[in-house]
Design a protein around this nucleic acid. Structure first.
Lengths: 198, 198
DNA sequence: CGCAATCCGATACACTCGTATCGATTAGGA
DNA sequence: TCCTAATCGATACGAGTGTATCGGATTGCG
C-alpha cells in the first residue's frame, strides 16, 4: 500500500508537518520550503505539493504540529501534578527548555511567533492558544481555594506567563542557563504565593 | 556631489541600513534582500551591493542600526530620570512599545532575535548587548543606597528584564494592550521594591 | 472486471535570489 | 592637469523558489 487511495491522509500530512517542524528548529523559518521540507521528510516534492496546496497551508500545518506538541506537554505536566499550585508551577516550568527536545520545540515556537508579526493568520492562532492557556490557569486557581493577592488573578497570571516567556527567550538565546532560568522563575512564583491566604 | 569619492561613506551606509530596518519592521526578516532593501531606500541595487559585500553584512548593519536606536532610547530614558529607582523603571518601561515608532523598533528587534536562533553572529551580539544592559543596571543599583532583597541583585534584575521582554512580546502579538502591559510591569517593579530597606 | 478517485513523481515556467562583473562617472590629490 | 580611487548603475549567471500540469501507478468500489 505505498500508493493509491489506501494511504491514511492525515498520517502522511502529520509526518510531513512534523518534518517541517524539525527543519524550522534547525534552520529557521526561512527553510519552510516545499522542496526542503520534502527532503527533510524523505519524500518527493510532488508528494508535499499533493498534501499541501499552498506554502501557507504547509506553514499552518507545521504550526498546528508544534501547537499540539505543546498542548500535549502541558497536559502531561498537568497530569503529573496534584494540587493547583503544583499544576501552575509545572506548566510554567514546562515553558523553560531544559532538554534538547524542549529546546527544539520552543525554538520552533519562537520562529512562528516572529512569523506571526507578519502573517496575521498565525498571530490569530497564537492569540487563541494563549488565551486558552490563560483561561485554563485562571479557572484552575479560581476553582481552588487559592486566592491570589489584589483580587486580580488574570493580571497576575499574565505577568507570570510573561516572565516565563521572557526567561524562555533568554535560554534560547544563550543569555541564561536553563537551571538559572528555572530558579528565577521559581522565585517569581514564590513571590506570588507569598502573602496569600492559602 | 552625487557621485565620486566625495560621498560620506558612513552616512550612505547608515541610510541604507535604516531603510532595511523599516523594511524588516513591515515585512519581516524574510524581506532582508539586496533588491528589496534598495527599493525601500530608493536606491539602485548596485549601490547597496557596493556598500555591503554580503547579504550578511547588510543584515549585521541593519542590526547595528536598531541596536543603536535602542541604546539611544535607553539613554534618553536614563537622562530624564533622576533617582536610580526611576532610572530602572524608565528603562524597563521603554521596553514596552506604546507609540508606533517604538512598536516598529521592537518588531525589528524581535525579528533579529528569531534570526539569532540560526545565525550565531547575531546571537553573540545580542548576548553582548543584553549583558551590557544588565551590568549597567546592576552598577546603577549597587552604587546607590538601594539594596534589593536576598542580596541577589543580578538575578532580580534578570527576572525583571525577562518580565519586560515577555510583556513586550505579548504586546507585539496583540495579546495585551500597551497600557495593560505597562500596568503589569509596574506591579512587578513595585513587588520588587517592596520589603526593601531604602 | 472496469473505472473512477486518489496518490505520487516528474517536469516546466516564471520569478527572485545572491553575487560577479563591466563600464561610466566623479572627486580629490600628485 | 591628470590620474587613481571611489561611487554607481546595469547586466548576467546559476541556483532556488512557488506553482501548474501531466502521466503513471495503485486502490477500492460498483
Amino acid at each position: 500500500m505505498s500508493r493509491g487511495v489506501g494511504r491514511d491522509h492525515e498520517t502522511v500530512r502529520g509526518a510531513i508537518a512534523a518534518a517541517a517542524c524539525v527543519l524550522v528548529a534547525e534552520e529557521g523559518a526561512g527553510a519552510l520550503t516545499v522542496r526542503r521540507v520534502a527532503a527533510a521528510a524523505g519524500v518527493s516534492p510532488g508528494r508535499v505539493q499533493h498534501y499541501f496546496p499552498d506554502r501557507t497551508a504547509l506553514m499552518l500545518a507545521a504550526f498546528d504540529s508544534v501547537q499540539h506538541a505543546v498542548a500535549a506537554e502541558v497536559a502531561t505536566a498537568v497530569g503529573e501534578a496534584a494540587a493547583p499550585e503544583q499544576v501552575l508551577t509545572a506548566v510554567l516550568r514546562a515553558m523553560i527548555p531544559t532538554d534538547d527536545t524542549a529546546m527544539r520545540r520552543l525554538r520552533v515556537v519562537a520562529q512562528f511567533e516572529s512569523l506571526a508579526l507578519t502573517e496575521d493568520i498565525l498571530a490569530t492562532r497564537i492569540r487563541e492558544g494563549h488565551a486558552e492557556l490563560l483561561a485554563f490557569l485562571e479557572r484552575l486557581l479560581e476553582s481552588s481555594r487559592i486566592r491570589l493577592d489584589s483580587n486580580n488573578t488574570e493580571g497576575t497570571l499574565q505577568g507570570l506567563l510573561a516572565t516565563a516567556e521572557g526567561l524562555s527567550g533568554q535560554v534560547l538565546l544563550g543569555q541564561s542557563s536553563p537551571d538559572r532560568a528555572l530558579a528565577l522563575l521559581q522565585t517569581s512564583i514564590d513571590d506570588m504565593f507569598r502573602g496569600v491566604a492559602s
